[in-house]
Design a protein around this nucleic acid. Structure first.
Lengths: 254, 254
DNA sequence: CGTGTTTTTGACTTCAGTCAATTAAAGTGG
DNA sequence: CCACTTTAATTGACTGAAGTCAAAAACACG
């Protein structure tokens, strides 16, 4: 990798998951006009109904996308981590259909809408990788529908923890069996379609069963395969190349 | 429109929702190598784990995408109608992460994977429209997450009926306030994350409340706006151009 | 230290699921 | 066109998972 310190390095890293790119393509990506923006926890990047003029790439930290019902009910519809593009969809669709909010302190590389679109169409390989990224987001969304629609609270949470583990690992932002999850129980509840109170109880039960310990904002998975089996988690839908999958036998070690 | 009887005409129609295309682009679309396949109700177009070599466009009829849990629980994750591309995602992602099944008797135009990809990258306007299509599918998936995760059974169903009404209308495949919905109550349940028995009871209540009558496989909406308000349905997420929205005042008639 | 968030717990409610049986519809083949 | 079979819809009685309300305890942070 050319410039590990370049703000767009995480994007390159991410795109490389879908195959190697030529040096020219990599340079074109790094040459995107951009500036870094630092966000505190809980700041909005885009709000529903806005017409964003910029997209951004997460350099470090996490963002959540969420929707709100008229009665105030909130549902988190996806979580983004390093290398993830925020608002590629909203940029192309011209009007944002959901909110994007920083989950933790976050660093984002802001890129003008047109520059991204131009890149995508001038460099087919990059365009294809970006398209793949949006397709994978779609795949994850479908799995969330399955998770929320058809699994009980304990397996829902187990599945969620597994997904997070695998994605973190793939993105090189943490270990698969022990990681920081900067979410409150209430936010966790909004992600899996439960209430905060119930998440609390289920978390306690999962801990007592020895499947996941979640203390404060950190998650420790004793046995990733066991948790995956329990939560009916099959990572295929993440479309990760095999070299980006965590080695499950590492899960036993601490 | 050039060839209303061409099997790919519905695709053109759909793409035109995202802006006009040049005559050359339209011809390139219609020139795609294709053959028509007729499917009975309940036939699989793709199965989870397969590596599809072809994509297809729905010419007439409906398809559902669904996932299955290890315990046999089934969740429908999306519904596709005329002009919809099946397995654009699976083609690009190379391995299918869900099943696609015909909901009713269905006519599909089968296109080789490479031909579609080539078209997308040689004709940027078409590529962009296809990309937009996949982004809109993503947006719909996010709304489904919201619907299943945060709304009670009656509003979930109300929302579902509204979405179907709007999408059917946009695609020119039916009227917004009275349409054929070729789904059993059990399938409806699989789509909204409930059980068949409960769907049956809720449907009865919605009928008695005068919001939607669903008899056999047909749905009649007395007052679309009232149903939308009840189901917290706000069509923005469908990203339909205003000319493709149903005129709500039509809903009162009939 | 004190204030505001988050987590935890208990008691109670309710929405939705389960099981099981009945009725109604839709095919099917003679 | 009618018995026969299959599939779908409907209903009742009961169970159970998750939600609600409210208060207390534990943290986090200035």
């Amino acid at each position: 990798m050319r410039s590990p310190s370049h703000p767009l390095a995480p994007l390159l890293w991410r795109l490389s998951l879908h195959g190697e790119h030529s040096a020219a393509d990599e340079e074109a990506v790094l040459a995107l006009p951009t500036h870094v923006r630092n966000l505190e926890r809980g700041q909005y990047v885009v709000q529903e109904g806005e017409k964003p003029t910029h997209s951004c790439v997460i350099v470090a930290g996490f963002a959540i996308r969420h929707k709100t019902g008229e009665d105030g009910a909130r549902q988190i519809v996806s979580i983004n981590m390093a290398g993830g593009m925020i608002d590629l969809q909203n940029s192309l669709l011209s009007i944002a259909d959901h909110n994007v909010e920083s989950l933790s302190r976050m660093k984002a590389a802001v890129i003008p809408r047109e520059a991204i679109i131009e890149l995508a169409f001038n460099r087919p390989a990059v365009g294809k990788a970006l398209w793949l990224e949006t397709l994978i987001e779609g795949s994850i969304a479908r799995e969330w529908i399955m998770n929320i629609g058809r699994r009980h609270a304990p397996q829902r949470l187990a599945h969620f923890f597994c997904e997070f583990a695998y994605r973190l690992h793939a993105v090189g932002a943490g270990s698969a069996c022990s990681y920081e999850l900067p979410m409150t129980q209430a936010q966790l509840a909004d992600a899996v379609g439960l209430t905060g109170v119930h998440v609390n109880r289920v978390l306690k039960a999962l801990g007592e069963a020895g499947l996941v310990k979640s203390f404060r904002r950190s998650v420790v998975i004793r046995n990733l395969l066991a948790l995956a089996a329990y939560g009916d988690f099959r990572p295929m839908y993440l479309h990760l190349p095999s070299h980006a999958l965590p080695a499950p036998w590492d899960a036993g070690r601490n």
